[in-house]
Amino acid sequence: MTHIALAGGALLILIGVWGMLTKKNIIRIIIGFSLFDTGLHVVLVGLGHLKNRTAPIIDSDLPREAAASRVVDPVPQAIVLTAIVIGLAVTAVLLAFALKLYQSRKTLDISELREGNND
C-alpha cells in the first residue's frame, strides 16, 4: 500500500514540475507549484506509513502500552501539517505577485514579459 502511495506522490511531483517548466501562463505555473506541493506531502506521509497500523491517537481501543507497536510514525505527519499551511502562504504570495504583475502589464503570458519591455 505504501508503494502505491509513494509512486502516486512521486508522479504528482513530476507532473507539477512539468507544469512549472513548460506552461506560459503564470496562474498555470502556480497551479503546477501547488500540485508539486501536494505530491511532496503524499510522499512524506507515505514514508511514515507502516503496514497494518493505525493513527497515532491514544484512546480506549488503543492502550498506551501497546501504542508503540500499533501506530504509524507521527513525525512526518507533524511535519506535513505545518508544510501544508506554509504551502498555502507561499501560494498566496505567488498569487499576489501575479495579480500585481497583471495590473501593471495587463498580461500573464511569460513570453510577453521580457525585461526592458516596459511599455
Partner: peptide, 10 residues
C-alpha cells in the same frame, strides 16, 4: 489518501 494512510490530522 491521507485517511487511508492513517493520517487523519493531515
Amino acid at each position: 489518501i491521507y485517511v487511508i494512510l492513517a493520517a487523519p490530522d493531515v
